[in-house]
Design a protein around this nucleic acid. Structure first.
Lengths: 145, 145
DNA sequence: CTATGTGCAAATCTTTTGCAGGCTA
DNA sequence: TAGCCTGCAAAAGATTTGCACATAG
């Protein structure tokens, strides 16, 4: 669904490994593969477990689906990824971890970043007594016109 | 989890039936029960299939879980409810259908309304060419402090 | 060497669906 | 009566888990 030869080059592998090292995550072969796929080209990415599993398979690397799930969870726990919930049936994982808005394309069920600098609140509900804001999720649902 | 005697009184039943009639939904016994539970007291409500199923059971009425699912879906299609996705593992349904922000209590996994008048965008990303905004979901995730 | 990670299959959980019988208009 | 609705059980999808084996530090 991406390119035709999405194999992992050295630069991508390096970037992936650096990303793992930065978070102190043990770099196993499978994790290196997934990391390279996630951050190898420096662009932000939004994946589901299935899409990442497919990407790994397409790149010629072997990683089991269960490990993809476990690894995505581990990357989230390590602060490397952010889980985004928009669909209910599926979890999306975002390589960009700052609070930022998303576009959700209802027809293709795709999730993309919306330009963060174009989102500004002039007023935001204050957190109730005894609580603090952990995160503000903004999902702009798009319909094809 | 709500009250101790959540049985359905006549006023609640009337309100529920009016709500169904307004949307042209055929009022079967089960739908009347669920409608009364949803809008019977005039307050906005956020339910999951399981919580509504439990509420029906507690009120002494019998509705199968499958019917709760089917009915929530039917109410959404009829424009009576709005589905809200915050958790990924579960769908929430909101009796308030206008676009408005939510508080999501991470510790109890509860969903509540946030005051809509306190949310204002001074700037919102424009929809990409060829698309229009279907809805803007704003979920303020709260952490107990 | 020891703790941690991986893979597979099975289990879990939410939600949907097929089908036979029931009920509304 | 005709068609939509309900209930049950089974199916379907996404995700997690148990356990034996492999591997990083």
């Amino acid at each position: 669904m991406d390119e035709n030869a999405p194999s992992i080059d050295d630069a991508a592998a390096d970037r992936g490994n650096a990303w793992l090292a930065r978070a102190g995550v043990r770099p196993t072969r499978q994790r290196a593969v997934l990391a390279a796929l996630l951050v190898g080209d420096g662009r932000d990415r939004h994946v589901t477990a299935e899409s990442l599993f497919a990407a790994a398979r397409d790149s010629g690397e072997s990683v089991s689906l269960a490990t993809v799930y476990n690894t995505l969870r581990a990357f989230c726990d390590a602060g490397l990824l952010q889980e985004v919930t928009v669909d209910g049936t599926r979890s999306y994982f975002d390589t960009r971890i700052e609070d930022h808005p998303h576009f959700y394309w209802e027809d293709t069920q795709e999730l993309t970043d919306a330009p963060a600098q174009e989102l500004r609140f002039s007023r935001l509900p204050a957190p109730p007594e005894g609580t603090e804001v952990a995160r503000v999720d903004v999902v702009i649902r798009l319909r094809r016109r």
